[in-house]
Amino acid sequence: MSDFLQFVFSGLTVGAIYALVGIGFALIYNASHVINFAQGEFVMIGGMATVALIDLGVPLLPAALVAIAIAALVGVALEKLAIEPARNAGVVTLIIITIGASILVRGVVEVVLGKQFHRLPSFSGDQPILVGGATLHPQSLWIVGALVVLVVGLKLFFDRHPFGKAILATAHNRLAAQLVGIEVKTVLVASFALSAAFGAIGGILTAPLTLTQYDVGVMLGVKGFCAAILGGLGSPFGAVLGGLIVGLAEALAAGYVSSAYKDVVAFVMILLVLFFMPSGLFGTKGTERV
């Protein structure tokens, strides 16, 4: 039982990060119908920039805030410089553009900050908390807590704030949104900034647990993509569920089946889901119009 609890703790911790990355995929997909393969790089930027600033003597909180701002700026730059000029390109071309951007970002970080691993100190020490016979790292609480706060905030933003509503409206029907006077361009930029910020927050929160390096974004991006697809593309809240499911499945598989194959779990799961429910767990299915 305590084993199980232990696996659930680690599953939820990792899953929360996948969820944050997944939300980012969903936000950008909603605004632009682009799958942003550079999503994982935002996570990496968050962690790496915070580490670099702390090395310069900046305290944690301002360092984190600046790192989030840097990631958001990179997100905006990505939209303005790479996505917008290729507005009418096909799916494959857009995928390649975001992949190119991710290689570029990795390259820049590699040159500026080097290839070494970095570790951020834990926010509230490393003294594990005992819960029902299992141990919980305080950082896990930070991660899951941040996810909860961000998801609730996002929900309120979409439901209450006029700009949040505008983002939803654009996702639902771009043309109609334009007709009622919504600045679609602003929505696009905001979506990229927001999703970059979410990724960066994830990166900062996990850096104390997992180390960070210029190329940690690749696998995280792919797993976040899994989360987003599992939750039904374009549904930020579906992506949260998707992320948590992937994280839990990985942790349970690592615990009970084979830790060597924990990474395979997410991908086998996504294949099975796609084979049997081609639009994800929570996606809507329609008949393609001819």
Partner: peptide, 25 residues
């Protein structure tokens, strides 16, 4: 057969997943 029923991003995801599974094995 199962993979190529998918389209666009879903196809991208599925082929990606297949590739990663092979490389992990």
């Amino acid at each position: 057969r199962p993979i190529l029923r998918l389209k666009g991003h879903y196809l991208a995801m599925a082929t990606l997943a297949f590739g990663i599974i092979v490389s992990l094995v």
